[in-house]
Design a protein around this nucleic acid. Sequence first.
DNA 1: ATTTCCTTTTACGTTAACGTCAATTAGTTG
DNA 2: CAACTAATTGACGTTAACGTAAAAGGAAAT
Lengths: 132, 132
Amino acid sequence: MDNYQYSIAELAQMMDVTTRTIRYYEELGLIAPERKGSVRLYNEGDRVRLKLILRGRRLGFSLQEIEEMLSLYDADPTEVKQLQEVIRRGDQKIKEIEDQIKDLQAVHGELIELRAKLNKTLQEKWKGESSK
Amino acid sequence: MDNYQYSIAELAQMMDVTTRTIRYYEELGLIAPERKGSVRLYNEGDRVRLKLILRGRRLGFSLQEIEEMLSLYDADPTEVKQLQEVIRRGDQKIKEIEDQIKDLQAVHGELIELRAKLNKTLQEKWKGESSK
DNA sequence: ATTTCCTTTTACGTTAACGTCAATTAGTTG
DNA sequence: CAACTAATTGACGTTAACGTAAAAGGAAAT
């Protein structure tokens, strides 16, 4: 069965966050779980959505940026004007991410280069020591 | 001449940040400009360092993480033990960045896919409209 | 029925990364 | 020398993203 329900505590433990964090995301409109009375019930979709949020957070996006990205998935497919707007915003975000990947690759390259230099310094120190 | 000096206001304007930001980074030990009396004087090295900080910030790193990364460049090359430690921390950071690049590429791929779907929906709407 | 456990809402507290403002000082221009 | 102009330190304010604690409700086990 794919329609298993999670309590907030279960979901929190699965995703390794606190319940406060999950409720806070709901407060911001990032998640909207079902309710049975007053208690929240989360399904697979909610879990996936939370996972997307957490990945975005790890990548350094603000919760507002994350909301904007998630909203791209919630567009009304019957409204042409909306579709066009969402595609435009999506393209913008895609470009930003491409830039970010390039910057990250630059940082990566620089660290690799630094590592090589440090290693060389280290090797030369060995040669100097071994001849004493 | 490569040893031109900048005032804090000049540097701030060049890098498009406020002077407060620059002073705050100094407070955290991220930059250490020369002083002529009490007034700060920045050189090319300081400018490059600030640029690195700002790139790190754009990429979502905390100022503390940025400090740790910059500190990799400040290792004492005469201390073998230190060199080894710095290389170890550097390797760790390199791995993290590789993971981050992979995650970002995943996000990129998902957005591209979404874009394709939205576009298809849009095309079909056109066909539907044009036959009316 | 009472205790236990999980949940809810409300509300105040905290940290990072600055913004903003005030008071003071140092250099220079009319 | 008076009046700007730009710099400095100090201090309090602000926002995002939660942490933490208190009060109250419902269901289940003893």
